[in-house]
Measured scan of single mutants.
Amino acid sequence: MEVRTIKVFTTVDNINLHTQVVDMSMTYGQQFGPTYLDGADVTKIKPHNSHEGKTFYVLPNDDTLRVEAFEYYHTTDPSFLGRYMSALNHTKKWKYPQVNGLTSIKWADNNCYLATALLTLQQIELKFNPPALQDAYYRARAGEAANFCALILAYCNKTVGELGDVRETMSYLFQHANLDSCKRVLNVVCKTCGQQQTTLKGVEAVMYMGTLSYEQFKKGVQIPCTCGKQATKYLVQQESPFVMMSAPPAQYELKHGTFTCASEYTGNYQCGHYKHITSKETLYCIDGALLTKSSEYKGPITDVFYKENSYTTTIK
């Protein structure tokens, strides 16, 4: 009895394709271990004539594949690729409408935090270190965002349907971005203890939790000093293409032309909904596939993004 075979390709990165001759009487799992086709788990399936010449994702289970996976995804987590594939199996079914010149995501599976993050990423200057993220990001900007969303979920250790947080998501993504040249110098002034300067680099240099107003941050924000008295913390120097200011959701007025974009969060910790506000020729609110415009805006804002380049204080 002759062994019926077909020729397929296996890959971990969709760049390096490895030619395989597979036995049609055995499952993919018996031949390769966990195997995925377009995100779908085909591990328990036997090869079919229609699979001839198709590319299958496999887990990096030998040295060659491990090197290829690390170079593309910059992670050695053995569960990463499987999590990416199972997320992709959902995100490829989502709709990605162009809204006001940006790629958004039609609401499904509690994905409003991903839509808000995706919209924000198209408006701030950011370059990702893992080629996987950078490639998928370019495709997302062009309207094909399924891979990018699935990668975000995998890097953030999230599953489809789980509630997510924009600030946490951005923080994970910033860790995989090139923020080497970003720098922030802060000064804390206390009447009792004097003053202390701190220099922050990388992710810490672009994120701040405690106030939404970048102007206020430049002037000074009140913080408790270690001595128990009130101290003032203010920005001395900022070198970065953008800054992200966050605070627990509270009524906040966004003035046209003073910011790049913002995240609105309605609801409580267990259950809520994100919308995205962007400042173009007027203010726009993007909620999944829905767009509304207004000249002014007041609502429960939790993150505001500002364009920056270089700032030095005039406070002496």
Rank of each mutant, 00 (worst) to 15 (best):
E204F: 05
Y36P: 00
D38Q: 12
G288F: 00
T292F: 13
P300D: 13
N129Y: 07
F174D: 04
E239S: 09
P224K: 14
H48D: 14
E68G: 07
I301V: 11
G161L: 00
M85F: 14
G53I: 07
Y214N: 02
D41G: 08
D180Q: 12
T199A: 08
F174W: 01
L17G: 05
G299M: 04
S294N: 10
L37K: 11
N100D: 10
A231C: 08
Q251S: 11
A145T: 04
N187F: 06
L212G: 03
Q123E: 10
T19D: 14
Y214A: 01
D135G: 07
T116H: 06
T314P: 09
T27A: 13
A247P: 00
T11L: 05
Q30G: 12
T282G: 15
Q195R: 10
F305Y: 05
N110E: 06
Q216A: 13
D63V: 08
G272V: 03
S279T: 08
D109W: 03
V188K: 11
Y311Q: 12
T232L: 13
K46V: 15
Y284N: 08
P248L: 15
L126W: 03
C261W: 01
Y36K: 01
T312W: 10
K307C: 13
G161P: 02
L114G: 02
A177T: 10
W94P: 05
M24N: 15
V21A: 12
M26P: 06
T211K: 02
G267Y: 09
F305N: 00
A146C: 07
S213T: 02
D77T: 03
F148P: 02
L163K: 15
F80N: 04
L133I: 04
K93W: 09
N89C: 14
E281M: 01
E52G: 12
E296I: 10
A150N: 03
I6E: 05
Y297P: 00
I105K: 05
P224V: 15
G82Q: 15
K92W: 03
C112S: 01
N16W: 06
A136C: 05
T159P: 06
N16E: 07
G210T: 01
N111R: 01
K255Q: 12
M209I: 14
C156R: 01
Y208F: 13
T169N: 02
C227T: 02
Y28E: 00
P130V: 08
N100T: 07
Y137V: 06
Y138M: 14
M170V: 06
Y36M: 00
M207Q: 08
K307I: 10
S213M: 00
F174V: 04
Q122Y: 04
Y208Q: 04
T199P: 04
L88F: 11
L65A: 10
R83D: 04
T314K: 15
F80Q: 05
V99M: 15
A262V: 01
E253C: 07
S213E: 07
H18T: 08
I124F: 06
S246Q: 02
E204T: 06
Y265R: 06
T313Y: 14
K92Q: 10
A231R: 02
T103Y: 11
L283G: 01
Q237I: 09
Q196C: 09
S50Y: 11
D135V: 08
K218G: 00
N178Q: 11
G164F: 00
D165H: 01
S79Y: 08
T5N: 14
E71A: 11
E296Q: 14
T76D: 13
A69E: 07
V12F: 06
P34W: 08
K92H: 07
D135A: 09
S79H: 14
L88Q: 06
K316Q: 15
Q195T: 14
R83H: 07
G29L: 07
T120Y: 03
R83L: 11
Q175S: 09
T198P: 01
I6C: 14
C112H: 03
K280Q: 14
R141N: 09
S86M: 10
T55I: 15
T55Q: 09
P60E: 07
Q222K: 13
E239N: 09
E2T: 11
H48N: 13
N111W: 04
L163H: 09
T232A: 04
K191M: 11
L65G: 07
T43W: 06
D23R: 12
T64C: 15
R184L: 02
T226G: 14
L114R: 02
R184N: 03
H18I: 06
F80C: 04
M244R: 00
L283F: 11
I152G: 02
H74Y: 04
N187L: 11
H51P: 02
E168N: 09
V221C: 09
F174Q: 02
V160S: 03
Q98R: 14
Y84N: 06
T232N: 06
K219I: 11
A145Q: 03
F259L: 01
P131K: 08
T226D: 10
Y234F: 10
P78D: 15
E162Y: 02
G143W: 03
Q237H: 15
G272L: 01
K255R: 12
R66T: 11
Q175L: 07
Y252M: 12
Y252T: 15
N129M: 07
F148A: 04
D13S: 07
S310C: 09
P78T: 10
Q30H: 13
E52T: 11
A150F: 03
C149H: 03
T5I: 10
V58I: 11
F32L: 12
L65S: 11
R141G: 07
Q195Y: 10
G210F: 00
N110F: 03
K183T: 15
H256P: 15
V185G: 01
Y113Q: 01
S171T: 13
K293M: 12
N147S: 11
S246F: 06
L179M: 08
S279N: 10
R184S: 15
Y96P: 05
L163A: 15
D180Y: 10
M244T: 00
N89W: 09
V99D: 01
S279C: 08
V203S: 10
G202Y: 01
L59P: 05
D303L: 04
P300F: 14
L133M: 06
K46N: 14
A87K: 06
M207V: 08
V22K: 07
Y113L: 02
T199Y: 07
I277P: 00
S240T: 04
P300S: 13
L173K: 02
K218W: 03
S295G: 12
T282S: 13
N100R: 09
K275D: 00
R66P: 06
M170G: 02
M85A: 06
Y172N: 15
Y137I: 08
T91I: 08
Q122T: 03
C112T: 02
L173D: 05
V160H: 06
E2V: 10
Y96C: 03
P131N: 02
V189E: 13
E308L: 09
Q216M: 09
G220Y: 02
A140H: 05
S279A: 09
I6T: 11
I223H: 13
T35N: 05
N16A: 08
T232F: 08
F242N: 02
A115P: 05
S50H: 11
G299L: 00
F259T: 01
V203L: 09
A262G: 00
V58P: 05
D165E: 15
A145R: 02
V166K: 04
A108V: 08
K158E: 03
